[in-house]
Simulated assay, not measured.
Amino acid sequence: MRRCHVWNLGVEHARRIKTRDTSACGRCVSDWHRARILSTSAAMNERHLTFSGPAARLQYILLMGLFRLAVTRGLYGRFARGLGRVFGAERAVFLHEGRAPPYRIALNDGYWTRFALYRAPYEPEVARVLTAASGATPLFCDLGANKGYWTTRAAPLFEQVIAVEASAATFADLSGNARDVPNVTLHRAAIHARSGEEMRFVNTHLSHASARLEADLPAGGQDRVETVGTRAVDDLVPEGVAALIKLDVEGAEIAAIEGAARALKDGAVLIYEDHGNDPACTVSAHLLSDPDMRLYSIGTGLIPMPDVATIRACKTDAYKGYNFLAARADSELMGRIMQGFANWARSG
Rank of each mutant, 00 (worst) to 15 (best):
Val308Tyr: 05
Ala168Phe: 06
Met1Asn: 02
Phe79Gln: 01
Gln222Arg: 14
Ser210Ile: 00
Arg119Ala: 09
Gly144Asn: 13
Leu236Ser: 00
Asp109Val: 02
Asn45Glu: 15
Arg224Gln: 13
Ala345Asp: 14
Gly348Arg: 13
Ile245Gln: 07
Ala242Trp: 00
Ala92Tyr: 00
Leu117Cys: 02
Arg231Val: 08
Ala100Leu: 08
Cys314Asn: 12
Trp150Glu: 07
Asp317Lys: 11
Thr185Gly: 06
Val181Lys: 03
Leu295Ser: 03
Val269Asp: 09
Ser23Cys: 06
Arg57Trp: 06
Leu130Val: 08
His13Trp: 09
Met334Arg: 11
Glu250Thr: 01
Ala132Gln: 09
Pro138Arg: 11
Arg36Pro: 14
Arg179Thr: 15
Ala132His: 13
Ala116His: 14
Ala132Asp: 03
Asp274Pro: 01
Phe94Ala: 00
Ala256Glu: 05
Pro101Phe: 08
Leu9Asp: 05
Ala14Cys: 09
Leu287Tyr: 01
Ala120Pro: 15
Ala92Glu: 00
Ala232Asn: 10
Tyr272Leu: 11
Ala155His: 09
Leu217Pro: 07
Leu69Thr: 15
Ala255Leu: 11
Arg57Asp: 09
Ser297Val: 02
Trp150Cys: 07
Asp142Met: 08
Phe341His: 12
Val283Pro: 05
Gly77Asn: 04
Val161Cys: 04
Trp32Asp: 11
Leu62Ser: 05
Gly176Pro: 15
Ala242Ile: 01
Val269Leu: 10
Ser207Glu: 07
Ser297Phe: 01
Cys314Ala: 02
Asp290Thr: 03
Phe94Val: 01
Ala329Asn: 12
Ile17Ala: 00
Glu198Phe: 08
Glu253Leu: 00
Pro102Arg: 09
Asn203Trp: 00
Ile191Phe: 00
Asp173Thr: 01
Val93Pro: 03
Glu125Pro: 15
